[in-house]
């Protein structure tokens, strides 16, 4: 590199000014304190220290998972008992069938009277089947078979919708005979997770 004496001389002066800048003394106590704050940490055993933390974390996780599973199973058992014994108390109606619901509701009600007679007339021949017995019991809320194993809901709502009888199969219910093809009004008890817990047919 070709030397430029004049520039080098000037750079020497700039360097002298540059070197006059010392590191701020205010940082020294900060750094001193930061280093002294490490006294509690054993310096030699950093890797072991990390591994021990990892082991403790893993142990806590294992305990947490085991506890969670145990709690879940306990809750399921108690839920089954609660749902089977309690007829869904203290629920509020949140959704009522909108717009066309009024007409549909009326027609359903009108036809349900006719069907009620038909169902009653066939009652003796169907009374024996378990499906019919379950169907007849749907006048009141009964727990849905598909809700078994769900976490118990703390906030329950009743949702009223029109369904075809055959649609109830997905909930584990068999609509007997003509009811499978008919539209009917059903009330579902729904938990805060959006999953149905119990059903009642509005006859």
């Amino acid at each position: 590199m070709r030397s430029n004496p004049e520039l080098d001389g000037i750079l020497t002066e700039v360097r002298r000014d540059h070197r006059a800048n010392d590191a701020p003394a205010s940082l020294e106590p900060v750094l001193r304190a930061a280093a002294e704050g490490r006294k509690a940490v054993p310096a030699g055993g950093r890797p072991g220290f990390k591994w021990s933390w990892a082991a403790v974390t893993a142990l806590l996780l294992a305990f947490g998972i085991a506890g969670g599973v145990w709690q879940l199973r306990t809750r399921h058992q108690s839920t089954d008992q609660q749902v089977q014994s309690a007829p869904v108390p203290q629920v509020r109606v949140e959704v009522v069938v909108p717009s066309e619901s009024a007409t549909e509701k009326r027609s359903v009600t009108a036809s349900s009277k006719r069907e009620a007679g038909a169902v009653r007339s066939r009652a003796p021949e169907l009374a024996a089947s378990p499906a019919q017995q379950r169907w007849n019991a749907l006048d009141e809320f009964v727990p849905l078979p598909v809700s078994e194993g769900l976490v118990p809901a703390s906030d329950l709502s009743v949702v009223r919708i029109k369904v075809r009888g055959s649609d109830l199969q997905q909930y584990g219910l068999d609509a007997p005979g003509d009811a499978a093809t008919q539209m009917m009004l059903a009330e579902f008890v729904v938990g805060e997770d959006g999953l149905p817990r119990a059903i009642r047919i509005v006859r």
Binding site: R19, N21, L31, R32
Partner: peptide
């Protein structure tokens, strides 16, 4: 310094702090 010696940390800072500060300032 890693063992918690504040004096050692201060010594490191006194030794090299000027270089770092001047470089960043410039």
């Amino acid at each position: 310094a890693l063992k918690g010696s504040g004096e050692a940390m201060a010594a490191i800072y006194r030794r090299h702090g000027g270089l770092i500060y001047r470089f960043t300032l410039q």
